[in-house]
Design a protein around this nucleic acid. Sequence first.
DNA 1: CCTGCTTTAGAATGATCGTTCTCCTACATC
DNA 2: GATGTAGGAGAACGATCATTCTAAAGCAGG
Lengths: 202, 202
Amino acid sequence: MPRAKSKSRENLLDNALNTFWKTGFHVVSMGDLVRETGVSRAGIYSDFGGKEDLFHACLDRYQDTVVTPAFAPVEAEGAGIEGIKAYFDNLLARFEDTGGFGMGCLVGNTLSQIPEDAQETRQRLRAHCDRLTAGFHKVLTYENGDDGPLSVSEIAALARYTMLSVQGIWSYSRLTGDVAELRAASDMLIAVLKARLRGAPD
Amino acid sequence: MPRAKSKSRENLLDNALNTFWKTGFHVVSMGDLVRETGVSRAGIYSDFGGKEDLFHACLDRYQDTVVTPAFAPVEAEGAGIEGIKAYFDNLLARFEDTGGFGMGCLVGNTLSQIPEDAQETRQRLRAHCDRLTAGFHKVLTYENGDDGPLSVSEIAALARYTMLSVQGIWSYSRLTGDVAELRAASDMLIAVLKARLRGAPD
DNA sequence: CCTGCTTTAGAATGATCGTTCTCCTACATC
DNA sequence: GATGTAGGAGAACGATCATTCTAAAGCAGG
């Protein structure tokens, strides 16, 4: 009977995820990962193929352990604008937990340093953006109802715009230590969505 | 009498800037810079202290040769919303020139991979964000006039929100090759600003 | 051609990278 | 306690990194 995995192995992915999250793929060395995860080099290489494979696994883990819980209020059945607000609150709470500068979004961070030919990575980033956009799209469609002011294409554009703004907010969270700035931007975005659902004229 | 600088030296900064812009500080090696700029290693080290000093010089150069011309319509005396629109058009035109994926914003790209203790770099990024925010703030103040619907603090929040959204849009430009997506987001942001200047209720 | 200076290509250096390997410890099962 | 195996510590390796150094080439003024 095979032995159970050691304790440190269980947290390997989560610790590696946090390390990559802080400063990005290229800045993190295998030595850093060994130190931060407490797992030996051989252990990392036997569980994953190498640094890049580990990073891809971290991107997937990020979806499961970070995005899914935080974004749940948006993806929940019958979620409305308050679901988006709850999502922002989750992100703000995470920012406040870190104290000082935030870490932004792992996907957004990766996006800013991805080479043109890293297709496997790019595909994961795109999936993330599409996931967020789809969630916002669903909520906006729900709020718009059958006879709301927004057309389907307007909803699509507004959903993507929301996703882009969220990325901008979390990118900036790496530069500020003031949660009030981020909260103001989140509130502004919520207000914008509400206004357009109410039929603000162009 | 000292000789004039060689031709390749004149473009050193611009070529280095483009190289850093594409993939970020850590991915670019000195060998890459030598190849892309056509200047010898010794030449780079004599004109600048080292890789990091060169990068800082590129951040400054970025302000002068990229941000200043593109952002000029916003910073111009008496600029209004159409100045912001012209700024977006400049960025969209730049995106279309590259063909395929965009390069985003050098500041935004750097922000996503900056270590917590890189204070000299962080200071430059903050200055950039403050510059954009100040430009939008000026335009919004102008458009709001003496008896507009927005208070001073609302203008400040809206200016920062605009800056954040712009960063999000240009971050996403690294993931898409479709200028229509970016234009839709830009148009949406303009519409949002106009609506709030018209006094959209919260 | 000679002299003085700038700029070049490229080797040398020491550090660090990702990756692999060996050796040894620690523990489950008998 | 003996045995088998998984995991950890860290050396070894070749590649590449930023940086420095050497030597030669290019060019201006005499």
